[in-house]
Amino acid sequence: MAVTFTVNGRPVTSAAPEGTPLLWVLREELKLTGTKYGCGAGQCGACMVHIEGGRTFSCLTPVSSVQGKSVTTIEGLSPGRLNALQRAWLAESVPQCGYCQSGQLMSAAALLAANPRPTRAQIRDHMSTNVCRCGTYPRIMRAIERAAREG
């Protein structure tokens, strides 16, 4: 049974078996490889996407469950130009290996969408969903504060 949904505003159809995680449909079928596989268990957040605007682990989301829904990936976060978070990410030189950063940015974008001026405690709490093994956490904190400040 094919599933139809939108990704970054574009309608797509996948014939993947219904239990297939959205992550693998995005990456290998739709070639949107900015969303990363890290743990497959909702433990690291490298696969974070927005579904109907809310952050979601795409590794735990069966593709069948997004029928008719709107999915945003890192490629669709701010197409064509960098948004305030991405600019802040560069200004603070956040990424090291970079592998987790799509997921970090998707998490941070969901935070600022709901709470444009988060406290440090709120940032810490929200962003602890995502793992960065390079330990870019102090810079993630600074970059979110900068993006909130500079909009």
């Binding site: 990936t73 890192i74 990424p95 970079g98 950063q101």
Partner: peptide, 27 residues
């Protein structure tokens, strides 16, 4: 100076081996 690959790491373009796609590729 900005690390040369940094811009590619904030918008999903950075290419790791896991991202490689080839015609006819299997898993």
């Amino acid at each position: 100076v900005m690390r040369v690959e940094l811009p590619s790491k904030v918008d999903g373009r950075a290419q790791y081996s896991i991202d490689v796609q080839l015609p006819g590729m299997l898993y």
